[in-house]
Simulated assay, not measured.
Amino acid sequence: MFRHTFLSVICCTLLAACGGSSSGNSSDETSSGGQDSSSSGGQESVSIPLDSQFYGLWTYADAAYVAVAKDTVTVFTHDLEKDCYDSGLFTVDASTETSLTSTDVETGEQATSKFAFVDDYLSIEEEGEVLYFQQAGLFDPTPSCGSYHDVTEVEVALDLSFLPPYVVINRDAQDTGKVEYDYAIRFDVNKSGTLDAGDVALIIRHFKSDAEYPNNHSLAITELEGDIWSYMPRHQQDVIASEHTNTELNSVQVEQSGNRLTFTVDPGQHALLAHINEETPVQIRTFMNYPEPEAEVISEWSDGPWNWSSKLHQDALPDSGFTQPNFYSDMLIDDAAADLIQGESMWVDIKSVKFSFTK
């Protein structure tokens, strides 16, 4: 009977790869440290995290990628014929320093994997099959090979207490490299209950930089554009970082209408977006870093820097953790007014968010 483990996901793409070795390495040895790993169907709880030397993004001949983290494993496979990416999401149930037992988020199937280094290669063994991986750099799993839930478009309408017709970026008062504005729709696609490796977000984000705009430049927030950001483990570190590449397939359509920002994206654009639907846990985060707010009043605006005493302003929906769109009527989630986590600005004060999934 076929088992849906993360090596089997790769082998389905590579066909005859299982049981063999990567180019330049013919060893079939596996980790001896995996003998005490949990293989009892999840009955044993996590005791020792997988050693961080195994963390990071690894590749098999650029045809498959495995992102290994303490609590999750994410697999990407490149369909060369269609030139698209599939992905598999796995959460860790139990582990030792050299092995882990994981569950496929989509199918619920479970398997134990053993990790070791053979020369410069990371070897991963499952059920007697071994593949060898090399360290990978930043890569772009776009486009996806299709939605797992037949979703063709996702629309997220974020209503704020006030959103001005323009904002000022690259302010003199701001330090270079700091985030100035950040509006994020985060999806817990691996359903781990936390934002971690394998998750994905739609984000408008701007860092102060002289690369594209001059200092003290005014523009509509939508001109900053939206992007798809994925969360991946740093190499051999217990650190999760958000990352993206500046390509057309990673762009998110964003429109402003009054105090509303509307994000629109096709799940076919990115392999991780292929997993989202109305049951995917979500979290909305807004953030603004605005040191030395100006005192000048703009009478046409209901809020602005003249009202603020704080440098940092942020809000979240829900206040902590995640929620699901299908828990709410019409997938409309309301938030209490003026309940910011930090600061006073209405520019980041979430009023509500509404989700739409077209199938």
Rank of each mutant, 00 (worst) to 15 (best):
Y148M: 15
D150T: 00
T152C: 03
D159K: 03
L160T: 03
L160H: 00
S161K: 10
Y166W: 14
V167R: 05
V168F: 02
R171I: 00
A173H: 04
G177Q: 11
E180K: 08
E180V: 08
Y181R: 01
Y183R: 03
I185C: 06
I185Y: 00
D188Q: 08
T194G: 14
D196V: 14
A197L: 13
D199K: 08
D199T: 12
V200F: 07
A201V: 12
I203N: 14
I203M: 13
K208Y: 10
D210K: 14
H217Q: 05
S218P: 12
S218D: 12
L224V: 13
E225P: 02
I228M: 09
S230G: 15
S230P: 03
S230D: 08
R234E: 06
H235D: 02
Q236V: 09
Q236W: 02
Q237R: 11
D238Q: 10
D238N: 14
V239T: 11
T247W: 06
T247R: 05
E248S: 07
E248Y: 05
E248Q: 06
L249C: 00
L249A: 07
N250T: 07
E255A: 07
R260Y: 00
P267F: 01
Q269C: 05
H275K: 04
H275E: 11
H275L: 03
H275A: 10
N277L: 06
E278H: 01
E279V: 15
T280K: 08
T280E: 09
P281T: 12
Q283R: 09
R285G: 05
F287C: 08
M288K: 06
N289I: 03
Y290H: 13
P291A: 11
P291S: 12
E292M: 06
